[in-house]
Simulated scan of single mutants.
Amino acid sequence: MKKIFLFTLMLFANVSHASVIMVGTRVIFSSGLTEKTVQFNNPDPQPYIVEIKLTGERENSSATPPFIAVPPVFRIEPNQGQSVRLISSKARLALPQDRESVFYMNFTQIPALKASERNDNLLIIAVKSRIKVFYRPESLSGQQGDAFKLLRFSLSDGKVIVENPTGYYLSVSSARYVKGGHSTSLTDAMMLPPFSKTEWSPAGRVTSLRGGKILITQVNDYGAYVEDTRDL
């Protein structure tokens, strides 16, 4: 009996190991837009079938994001590209306008089988990638890249309390506290939601923030890692 086995490999932020890649590492959807074009490329000599699904943070959530992908399924030929339109006509009415909202674009790629291979015993690897989609109201004050300057830091029971008073998400790759030549790790990769408070547990003992500085490496709108410093 001929069998085809399907194995799914999940990739999150980094899609560089996938065959079909999206141009960019995130999508910024401004409230002034009704659609945004996302570009996919296939540098492989193998054609792929790609399926796109938009979800909230939990993929199995019943909440439906106010976006659709057109086309939701497509075949991408070797060394070719494919444009996909993210369309929304109701995001402005459905989402808060005083802060960003985040969704996820999940795209699964499966090698397209040749007619001669369809009766063979095959192990097919389906690669699933996940990209953040930020909905950004035009009414937000300031710039996302400057939101770090407004973060508030305090110390409570040995933990660093981080307050984000802005309407922007901050994608933090890492954070460190530096004082007197000593560096203490505060957190690994995480997101600071708008208007939120978050606890960071230092890797070492921190008794006071005064006189030190916090170095945060964050991912900007272009997917680049940027290090910012705050004196305390």
Rank of each mutant, 00 (worst) to 15 (best):
T108G: 03
S154C: 06
A126C: 06
D44H: 10
F74I: 02
L93D: 14
K213S: 12
I76S: 00
F29P: 12
P96R: 00
H17I: 05
N106S: 12
I68D: 02
G223T: 08
K159A: 05
S62R: 13
A175Q: 05
S31T: 01
F12Q: 13
R176D: 07
G223H: 04
G212I: 06
I131M: 15
A69D: 08
V27Y: 03
Y135D: 01
A189I: 06
L123R: 09
Q218N: 10
L170V: 13
A147F: 02
K197P: 02
M22G: 07
Q97W: 01
N164F: 09
M105G: 14
V178G: 04
L150Y: 13
S154I: 07
Y222W: 03
Y48T: 11
S61A: 08
N60T: 11
I52D: 01
A63Q: 12
Y48A: 07
S201Q: 12
I110D: 06
Q144Y: 05
I76A: 02
L186I: 03
N42S: 06
L54H: 01
G56W: 04
I110G: 03
I68G: 02
V84Q: 05
S61Q: 03
L86G: 06
R99D: 01
R136E: 11
T25G: 06
S141A: 07
Q46D: 05
N79S: 14
Y104G: 04
G142H: 10
V219T: 15
L123H: 14
H17N: 11
N119P: 00
E77Q: 14
I110A: 13
S154L: 05
G56F: 04
P45T: 10
Q80W: 08
R85F: 09
E77R: 15
E163I: 07
T198F: 13
R152F: 08
K213F: 01
M22H: 05
F195Q: 07
T229G: 00
Q46I: 15
M191K: 13
A115K: 07
